[in-house]
Nucleic acid binder design. Structure first.
Lengths: 212, 212
DNA sequence: CATTGACTCGAATAGCCGTTCTACTCTTGA
DNA sequence: TCAAGAGTAGAACGGCTATTCGAGTCAATG
């Protein structure tokens, strides 16, 4: 749906989103202009109409601060489904978001829907949302999203506890029926990547298609 | 901190909260006046200054729509701690809130912090937040907050799965080491009350005092 | 009765807001 | 070179906004 945006308009949208998050209300055209170093209010109006035409915002004509975001400002994107068991491709979800807040920075976080039972002993179930903080490193015992790189590009991903051992990395499921994945250090460094670690989980009961 | 509010100002604050939730921006004084059937904008300003003096809102002088709520609009209150094991008094938490959204109606929902392991087989852990939808009835198998009434007033509460059986109600923990609570139908009707059922859980990792 | 305090209205004001218009400067491509 | 399009500035306009002021009502209190 949304067309890609130029650098300038992308920064302008970013300012609007941050302003709303900070102030609890949308900015006026003049406030936008001041922040973006635009001298003319008409000029701001021009860019806003661009953002509107491309589906990023909706405006209410003539109303002061009449800007609405088409995506929920507090949501973080649900980027797809991840296997807790065997690594699978992260299957992308259509533009879904989940609201979290509570200290979660939406810029550096995203969510995945868990498939499978392999983290069940850590009480992460099929259908749960895991909230991931993007980071390239982690500590022993963290639950992480680990991605296998195939010729440098991300391939299959899995959700596991991370343990750095003498000669290898151990990706440990939380299910007695499943074996850990052992990866030699050099292969780990060459072919694997940490995408982030789990900072929260959210489970909905009774909703459509959720775990009971 | 907040002084109690008269009926009129309470409804006015409620309108403002709902307007923000609906429109994504605070209302203008005139919009408030129209909704509250107040003819004069000065009159609206008067009541707004009352709300501000009593700590319910903060205003930014001269700014259009310059109203901020002092409590987070999307949060639902964390009302206390509930035992998943033996019934305990619901221990009240200080004005904490947790952000949920995602279709959860803040008017009819609240959250509790879980203590104990008795719902562990349903993968609800010590330290998890359970989001409760207020309702007096429930269906078999729902996870509910059940309260024992002592002379009509709420006493101890517990978190269990609810099953209505022939001659009794069974409150079933999800922990093989614990026994269900059986309550005869007439005692149930006289002395117990459903406060609501679990519609979601939220778990934070790595934060202060959370379950690892 | 007189007073006080809470609440209400109507009008006025100064400034803010979104929008529109004209004119100008670039860059791109035919 | 010429035309088209995107981006910029400045000014102007009509409407909207928050705030203030003066005056009035009503109930409770002394």
């Amino acid at each position: 749906m949304p067309e890609p945006l130029g650098e300038f308009q992308r920064r302008m949208l970013e300012f609007i989103v941050n302003y709303i998050r900070r102030e609890g209300m949308p900015p006026t055209n003049r406030e936008i202009g001041k922040a973006m170093k635009i001298a003319s209010t008409g000029h701001v109006d021009y860019h806003l109409s661009m953002l509107e035409k491309r589906g990023y915002i909706v405006r209410e004509a003539k109303k002061s601060r009449g800007i609405k975001l088409t995506r929920h400002p507090w949501g973080i994107p649900v980027e797809g489904t991840i296997a807790a068991g065997e690594p699978i491709e992260i299957f992308s979800e259509p533009d879904q978001t989940i609201e979290v807040g509570h200290g979660v920075d939406p810029e550096s976080s995203f969510a995945l829907v868990v498939r499978g039972q392999s983290m069940i002993e850590d009480h992460i179930c099929d259908g749960d949302y895991v909230v991931i903080k993007r980071q390239r490193t982690c500590e022993n015992g963290d639950i992480v999203v680990a991605v296998h790189l195939v010729e440098g590009i991300p391939g299959k991903a899995t959700l596991k506890r991370f343990f750095l051992e003498k000669e290898q990395v151990r990706l440990q499921p939380a299910n007695a029926e499943l074996e850990p994945i052992y990866i030699p250090r050099d292969e780990w460094d060459r072919e694997w990547e940490i995408q982030g670690k789990v900072i929260a989980i959210v489970r909905h009961y009774g909703g459509p298609g959720r775990a009971a």
